[in-house]
Design a protein around this nucleic acid. Structure first.
Lengths: 361, 361
DNA sequence: CTGTTAGCGCCTTCAT
DNA sequence: ATGAAGGCGCTAACAG
């Protein structure tokens, strides 16, 4: 009888669109019940070693693979955590994804990542889609979504959401973010300490919290040192190399006076450097240049680009830890903001207001 | 009776870990059967407009969202396509993912991407994981997996697999790839045409088909033009900027003679350029430099880096088209190889063997 | 047009 | 230690 059942099983390969072996197939072949197969599969309950082996054998022979969907449905958990990023573009998110993937896997969970296409609507959709897939927790990296929208999202999905790169006041313990403003402040203060007072700035998208914070850091540093705000020195960029180039050219053709340029990300710094070169200006002799992000290329440019390093790796790891704890209904502590650190290379030299020319870099 | 049932429904928010509204809840609230709810949800079958509205209303009021897992299980399709990439690192995969995401979404399908961590084992695991999730089709970008392993994978999963960046002879119609060797050949031939004969080369990982192909292109071009192979001129790299730097230094300290350097990717070209600078050598006056990949930064470097553009965007789009067709059991045609195109900027000048110095770039 | 009845593949009491 | 039965949430015939 058992044998007969076995003979009916699909031994042929099913790569032609036929169906895969199911738990029932395995149970029949092993001469046990589905329940037993389930037990050996999950290591739950007691199973005699001999039958356990039979089951394994049957699974092997049939090339059985548990159906993930069915399993998740029954378990009410997909054992995976979802991540939505603003965009896939740029080294920054590559770094982030790399770490995120490693970290989740080290917890035995799967990472599902989705692209938010850098618009609030798509980001929201992306989160919803991950929620529909029953992720155990979701991590959201958004640049444009409003705090209100984020909170609404938190309330509308049944699993925990942790927000990265944003400080949402109403859910501070769900947030993992950088002290962007402080880092920008440090940059500009450093530039000032090197004897620069005419410092131009090219921002990243100014409608994002990041864009605002970095500019605010710039503004505050100037203020602290009694340097008046000069609107002509500030150009509003979009993060792209091209725009960095264009805006630096504007600065130049405007005849804006500046001895140092703070580009709020490395990509724009690179674009700007091209414009400077073309104008016959040398870095740092004629113009000092400071970036932000510490792109992989920053170190290898000529001259090496001074910039600020953001511990994005640590940050995403932390975010994932939080997410997993939340998924496990564990207690979490709120994470203090991460801080950037200045990476000094060769793109800055002493400026015209240097109090002592002996203090060369 | 209906009302009574409604009153028992969970109107409270369920963000505290409670369960979400189900189809049954909706059906009770709307005073219809699950089947009807299913019908309005999927637009299948005929439903009276008035009841349809009731159902919508009930869904609205309950904040109902269909359970994706249950749906997929019943449908035997998850309406999503899986993509495994070698790694998340680098601009290249960012570009790829960006396009991939857009393209799948334009077909109303979801993209699930996974990291293969650049090792054959993990790549295989990644594919399996996507298979377990019942993706309708899977796209694999692998650098290290053997053709045999790829074929084994194809046979072991029940959904179609399309391979990107590789030419697997036994499944040619499932492959979408570049003519890497030809592109490299063109580069070197171009360099030769510019009067270079002492051409050094820094390879990408030589155990990958890509690495082999690019080197082979280099070799063939030399051969065609009667230039003897010189092992001292070839350094085996790993794609990283750091290694590009180190190997270029080796070339220099070895006193290897070369007037042009072909770095098999832009990252290494950048590293190499640093080494050149440090040695007091100018690009292109002293050494001509050619890269590969057309990184976003190539255009903005000083001097602009000549390189080869690979239509990765088109390629991934094509791969996804193929995957979707296969998922729909449509006929597919085999895709001819994509070709790279030389992007000439300012990092190459005429070499010492230039037949006519009038033929400047 | 709408309800009933079976599954999809797996997990989990509850008996035995 | 193992089997039977019911359920996870949804879809899909098959009747009315």
């Amino acid at each position: 009888m058992r044998r007969i059942a076995c003979d009916k099983l699909p031994i042929i390969s099913w790569n032609q669109g036929s169906t895969m072996a199911t738990m029932l197939d395995v149970s029949l072949r092993a001469g046990v019940s589905k329940a037993t197969v389930s037990r050996v599969l999950n290591g739950t309950g007691q199973v005699k070693e001999s039958t356990r082996q039979q089951v394994f054998k049957a699974m092997e022979e049939l090339g059985y693979r548990p159906n993930f969907l069915a399993r998740s449905l029954a378990n009410r958990t997909s054992n995976s955590i979802g991540l939505v990023v603003s965009t896939f573009d740029g080294f920054y998110f590559g770094r982030l994804l790399q770490q995120a993937s490693r970290q989740t896997e080290s917890h035995g969970k799967q990472l599902i990542v989705t692209d938010g296409h850098d618009t609030p609507e798509r980001e929201e959709q992306a989160v919803q889609m991950l929620a529909d897939r029953q992720c155990d927790a979701i991590i959201l990296y958004t640049r444009y979504m409003s705090e209100k929208a984020i909170m609404a999202l938190v309330d509308s999905i049944p699993m925990p959401l942790v927000v990265i790169n944003r400080d949402v006041a109403q859910a501070r313990d769900r947030c993992v973010f950088f002290e962007q403003q402080d880092a920008a402040f440090q940059v500009v203060e450093y530039l000032i300490s090197q004897g620069h007072r005419d410092i131009a700035c090219i921002t990243v998208p100014i409608h994002t919290p990041t864009g605002k914070a970095r500019l605010e850091g710039y503004r505050n540093a100037l203020k602290k040192h009694g340097i008046p705000w000069d609107a002509a020195k500030v150009k509003y960029g979009d993060s792209s190399m091209t725009r960095g180039y264009e805006l630096c050219r504007e600065l130049l053709t405007d005849k804006t006076r500046f001895s140092a340029l703070f580009a709020c990300n490395d990509d724009m710094a690179l674009g700007a450097s091209k414009a400077l070169h073309q104008a016959g200006l040398h870095i740092p002799q004629d113009i000092s240049l400071f970036g932000f992000d510490d792109a992989p290329s920053a170190k290898w440019l000529e001259p090496g680009l001074s910039t600020v390093y953001l511990p994005i790796d640590n940050m995403i790891v932390t975010a994932i830890e939080q997410a997993i704890k939340l998924a496990n209904h564990q207690q979490i502590e709120t994470i203090p903001p991460f801080t950037g650190t200045l990476v000094l290379r060769d793109s800055v030299t002493v400026g015209p207001y240097s109090s002592s020319s002996a203090i060369n870099s």
